[in-house]
Amino acid sequence: MAQRRSEWSDRQEIHEVVLRYCRGIDRVDMDLVRSAYHPGAIDHHTGFTGTVEEYLAWVEPLLRARARTGGTMHVVGNHLVELHGDEAVSETYGTSVHWGEPAHSARANFTSGVRFVDHMTYRDGRWAISERWAVREWTRSDAGRFMPKEGDGPAGRRDGQDPLTLLQQSITSRKAHS
Rank of each mutant, 00 (worst) to 15 (best):
F48H: 01
R64F: 11
G47P: 01
H84V: 07
A155N: 09
A106N: 01
L56E: 01
V81Q: 07
R157K: 10
V18S: 01
E16A: 12
P163K: 09
P102A: 02
A88S: 05
Y21R: 02
Y93I: 06
A155E: 13
A155G: 09
P61G: 02
R66C: 09
G77R: 08
V18E: 08
T121L: 13
T69W: 06
V17A: 03
S130K: 15
Y55H: 13
E54A: 08
S105V: 02
E7F: 08
D124S: 15
V33E: 08
S170H: 14
G113Y: 03
D159V: 05
R157F: 00
M1H: 12
G47L: 06
R136C: 14
G47N: 05
Y37E: 01
D31G: 08
D86L: 02
R145G: 09
T95Y: 11
Q3M: 06
S96C: 08
M120P: 01
F48A: 05
I129C: 14
G156K: 12
D159A: 04
W8S: 11
D118G: 06
R68E: 15
G94I: 00
E7M: 06
G77W: 11
E137K: 15
Y21Q: 00
W99K: 03
H15P: 00
R27H: 06
R11I: 00
S96R: 00
A103C: 04
G151Q: 08
M73S: 14
V114L: 10
Y37A: 00
A106W: 05
T165E: 13
V59G: 09
P61C: 08
R174H: 14
L32V: 01
T92Q: 02
R157W: 06
H15A: 13
L80G: 03
L56M: 04
A103V: 03
E7Q: 05
T121E: 14
V33F: 05
S178Q: 14
H38T: 07
S141W: 12
L19E: 10
F146W: 14
E150Y: 03
L19D: 09
R123E: 15
F146Q: 04
N109I: 05
A134E: 14
W138C: 13
E53M: 04
T46C: 03
P148C: 00
N78R: 11
G125L: 12
T165V: 15
Y93T: 09
S170D: 11
R5D: 01
P39C: 03
R27V: 01
A88C: 01
L164S: 12
V89Y: 06
R140K: 15
R132A: 12
G77N: 13
A155P: 06
V59Q: 02
A57G: 14
A128H: 11
R11V: 02
G94Y: 02
S130A: 15
G40D: 07
I14V: 01
F146V: 07
G50H: 07
V81A: 07
Y93A: 10
D29K: 04
R5K: 00
N109S: 03
R174L: 15
V17C: 02
Q161L: 12
T49Y: 04
E7W: 05
Q3R: 10
D142Y: 08
R145V: 10
Y37G: 01
G85M: 04
V75A: 15
E54D: 12
D29I: 05
A106M: 01
H44K: 09
G70R: 10
R66L: 13
S141V: 09
W99Q: 01
R123L: 12
